[in-house]
Design a binder for these strands. Structure first.
Lengths: 224, 224
DNA sequence: ACAATTATGTAATACTTTTGTCATAAAATA
DNA sequence: TATTTTATGACAAAAGTATTACATAATTGT
């Protein structure tokens, strides 16, 4: 099947690369544009683009302008990236038909989640809504986790962490890797934080907590 | 195929040599620069450099400055070496677009792993995930070792040691060589330590333990 | 906007496993 | 056989992890 194309517009190469890496991992085709003019150019020449991720702050032509131009001829979903602190002009965005905002720094998880939510809405494509392993079920649509049929209440981070583990069953994950995926990419906190979260998660999963194995000297692994 | 070029910048010749040795062994071409000015000079005159390893602490022009200069004209991946204790200015690094940090002392393994991870990300090359020899299988993704189908639990060092042996099948390895690869470069402990680890490893590998041959007066060799 | 609640990250401490060293036994070499 | 090198097992030291408590940040309800 043809891959879904996403256009990423940002003047910072690093940011484009970052976004691209995560989307490519999810099997999307990513086209990069370093400024508004190039973005419009790519967009007009490739009718297949399913979604645009647009940085607000760019020299020459900012994200709003690009958005406005595109909206004159297309209803393609647009996600706006806003910098930390930068105020969101929600109203302007609403008028221009922005579908979503994501504040930098963002976690890759959030980005991918938003992208998929929008595409699901627009394309109506169904994605993996449920995950199961060893009696643990995550229902992403309902945002509910159950262990042996019984619902357990997880906090946001715990939920993300468990999801990451279950997405990578049988794979040894270093703390660094976990931090990079579950936390924000620019989070430079203590890797020991993970221990605490793992502990809490294990507790809540009751006897299924032991499915999260400690790999001494390396990190953790989820395995049934 | 053309070798991939890596530029190593450090004022200490010892450190440069060390890094170079390991990278050369992995078939990279290494260019050394002893100060920031020379580094920039080499970099601007050789457009083929695929990655830069940069020491933070250097007289005249420190690593940050070099990094900043390079970032003004290039997106080449940069790994920063920081001394033990020296505080990492993560934020500054992030702004300058540092790709990775490695703290001295580091194990050669870590260094090579980071380099390959970055290059893989940039160049998009895949690495070997499984190794097999004489009924011993190492699954690096799962971090599992099995002997004749049965999983064996290895400690961190045992795992590293076995990996090193299997990477160098049929090659006689001196204790010194083993120390330099599996242990940190600044580990000056007793080479006899290896004997103990080899012993434990042999035990855990059961009858396959004898694949690790003792070479009297020299060291060890893994051979099927 | 405020207080109350909950979630998250950090630090300190307790705990566990791993690792290195040593003493001694065994084996190989000359 | 004397000497050098390696194997082995016990144990102390080091390093990694679990757990708890607490401060701070985020969220919720009023």
């Amino acid at each position: 099947m043809e891959k879904i194309k996403i256009l990423v517009v940002d003047d910072e190469a690093r940011m484009r690369k970052l976004v691209k890496d995560f989307l490519v991992k999810k099997d999307y085709e990513v086209i990069e544009a370093e400024d508004g003019a190039k973005a419009l150019d790519y967009f007009y020449n490739d009718k297949e683009i399913a979604l645009i991720i647009l940085d607000v702050m760019m020299p020459q032509m900012d994200g709003w302008q690009v958005c406005k131009e595109i909206r004159e001829s297309s209803k393609v979903p647009i996600i706006m990236l806003t910098a930390r602190g930068e105020e969101r002009d929600e109203l302007l965005g609403f008028q221009l038909g922005v579908d979503e905002y994501i504040s930098k720094p963002f976690s890759p998880k959030i980005l991918v989640a938003r992208v998929e939510a929008i595409l699901r809405r627009v394309i109506g494509e169904e994605k993996q809504e449920k995950m199961e392993a060893g009696g643990i079920v995550i229902d992403h649509a309902a945002h509910i986790v159950s262990v042996d049929g019984e619902t357990v209440e997880l906090s946001y981070k715990e939920y993300e962490l468990l999801t990451y583990f279950m997405e990578n069953q049988g794979i040894a994950l270093s703390r660094e890797k976990i931090l990079n995926h579950v936390w924000n990419y620019d989070y430079f906190g203590d890797a020991r934080t993970i221990d605490t979260h793992v502990k809490k998660l294990r507790n809540k999963l009751k006897d299924k907590g032991e499915l999260i194995h400690t790999i001494w000297g390396l990190g953790y692994k989820f395995e049934v």
